[in-house]
Computed example of a mutant assay.
Amino acid sequence: MTTPPVPCPDEEPRWLSDEEQRAWRAFMHATVLLDDHLDRQLQRDAGMPHIYYALLVHLSQAPDRALRMTDLAQGVKITRSRLSHAITRLEADGWVRREECPSDKRGQLARLTESGEAKLREAAPGHVAAVRQAVFDRLTPEQTTQLGEIMQAVATALEPEGPCADLPWRR
């Protein structure tokens, strides 16, 4: 995996074509609206923001419903500081519990509680319906495949490897 080259300050920028500009603006418009739509749905129906739902999902899919905090931050692509704040709130609601990491005394685990699992089961149907209504009900099967391939290509290019990569969960 290589990172894209950084243009030299003396080089003329590669401006977007009209078609690229149209696609970029449509993408930005849709992602802002989608993020807001999903966040409002989860706040209204489950009393939690979208990021908290993502944290509960990641924990529910982990072995023993627990992950090291750094692995959880990486999984949901957020800073450790934002994760710590979110876990504090999820603990206060009784949905997550922090535990000492048995393999590393400096590390901590976040563990999904039974109450958190029940909350996730309660919230999931409405969230899936909102995702389906906002995205997949509007796409053909071919467009769904293309969307997955496009987003994977973008994500792969933006997630550089190596110890010096400036990624949110390392901050």
Rank of each mutant, 00 (worst) to 15 (best):
D71T: 02
H127G: 04
P49V: 03
W24T: 11
Q133P: 02
D45G: 09
G94T: 07
C164P: 01
L56G: 00
E20G: 05
E12F: 11
L16R: 15
T144R: 13
R44I: 04
H50N: 08
V57M: 08
D71G: 03
K77W: 05
H37V: 02
S84G: 15
D137A: 15
A23S: 11
L56V: 05
L56C: 02
L167M: 13
L34R: 10
K119T: 01
A123I: 01
I51K: 07
A110Q: 02
I87A: 00
V128A: 14
P163E: 14
R111I: 05
P102H: 04
D166Q: 14
D166H: 12
L16F: 12
A30P: 03
Y53S: 00
V135R: 05
E12N: 09
R138M: 05
L158M: 10
V6E: 11
I51D: 05
Q108V: 02
E91L: 04
D137I: 08
A165Y: 04
R25D: 10
Q61L: 13
I78K: 05
R22M: 12
E122T: 11
D104W: 01
A129N: 13
T145M: 10
W24Y: 15
H37W: 09
A124G: 03
P13F: 09
Q146L: 14
I51Y: 05
P102F: 02
G47E: 04
L158W: 07
W95L: 06
Y52E: 09
D71Q: 06
H58E: 15
E11S: 13
M48V: 05
A110L: 02
D64Q: 13
D35A: 13
T144F: 06
L33K: 15
A23K: 11
D10T: 11
D93F: 10
Q61D: 09
G162K: 09
M69L: 14
R98D: 01
D35N: 15
G126L: 03
R25N: 13
Y52C: 03
L120H: 01
A165C: 06
P5E: 09
C164V: 12
A54V: 04
P141C: 07
R80V: 00
R89N: 07
A118K: 11
L167V: 08
A130N: 04
S60R: 08
G162M: 05
R98E: 13
L158N: 12
R82D: 10
A66W: 02
E161D: 12
P9T: 09
A123D: 03
W15D: 09
E122H: 12
M48C: 07
H29K: 13
V128P: 01
L33W: 06
L112E: 00
A118G: 07
S60A: 14
H50W: 10
E114C: 04
V131I: 15
G116W: 00
L158G: 09
H37Y: 13
Q21G: 14
E100I: 06
D18K: 12
K77Y: 12
E117W: 08
